[in-house]
């Protein structure tokens, strides 16, 4: 489909908006039977992790009593996630602080790196977001049973619901619980993919309309600028949403309703 467009589009619409999401193998690798090729996705995961580690370590390197700019960023992000956990989960949730912090900063770095032209957005792939969401889902479920034992099943029976409604409510609760990893992963993946696709489509308009003169090309360019700002916001917002939903799931597992 994409290649067809590129071939038959001619001068009008030569840009395939989905091309940016293609996985390209950079170094083929194999661990036993497992294909562990280093791809462009792997590269940007490594870059995101390196950016987070670099920022954190250089930021806190001076250990100043009065923080500078970089140290302020590090400290603010620390306090931000710590407060998120304290507010949504309580002090019992601080055990999971390093995990939530890693999750938030990793997703944020991947999303923001994806905003650089010609880069690759790791989180625009459903398999990556689903793996994160599924890991959280399994972890939270194990945590729930570990803390409450079989009593965690009562999570699916809300308080104050009349008994005759339970046959209806309990399956709904179970389904909504089981769809958590799907909604969590699809929300992030779809936002990233849709945003980048829209940007690419508008970029195509700039080229296509710009070929008729400067004035028609300016209009989609102005939209591009606005959308790019919006996408940066979405990149940060989706990382926040992912982290806060993780906090809420942790709270459900630790304290039930």
């Amino acid at each position: 489909m994409a290649t067809e467009n590129a071939e038959h589009g001619g001068g009008g619409f030569a840009i395939d908006p989905m091309h940016q999401f293609e996985i390209k193998t950079l170094f083929p690798m194999q661990f036993g039977n497992i294909d562990a090729s280093f791809t462009n996705s792997s590269l940007f995961m490594v870059l995101a992790a390196a950016a987070v580690i670099g920022l954190m370590l250089t930021g806190i390197n001076r250990r100043a009593m009065v923080p500078g700019r970089l140290q302020s960023i590090v400290e603010l992000s620390y306090e931000f996630i710590a407060n998120m956990l304290r507010d949504n989960v309580g002090t019992a949730g601080l055990r999971f602080f390093p995990f939530v912090f890693t999750l938030f900063t990793f997703i944020l770095a991947c999303n923001l790196l994806g905003m650089i032209p010609y880069s690759f957005t790791v989180t625009s792939h459903i398999i990556v977001t689903f793996a994160l969401a599924f890991f959280i889902f399994i972890g939270v479920t194990i945590l729930g049973f570990a803390v409450h034992g079989v009593g965690f099943m009562k999570f699916f029976v809300p308080h104050g619901v009349p008994v005759y409604l339970l046959p209806l409510v309990v399956p709904i609760e179970v389904v909504s619980y089981l769809t958590r990893p799907i909604s969590l992963s699809v929300r992030l993946f779809a936002n990233m993919m849709a945003g980048h696709t829209v940007l690419k489509v508008f970029a195509g308009f700039v080229i296509a309309l710009g070929s008729f003169g400067i004035a028609p090309g300016i209009v989609p360019l102005v939209f591009m600028v606005g959308l790019t700002g919006l996408e940066v916001l979405v990149a940060a917002l989706q990382a926040y949403v992912f982290a806060i939903l993780t906090c809420i799931y942790l709270n459900d597992a630790l304290h039930m309703h």
């Binding site: 996985i23 280093f38 791809t39 792997s42 890693t102």
Partner: peptide, 13 residues
């Protein structure tokens, strides 16, 4: 492409 992505996600994360 799923397996290499999962492998590297696990390693990097």
């Amino acid at each position: 492409t799923f397996v290499p992505q999962l492998v590297w996600l696990t390693i990097v994360f």
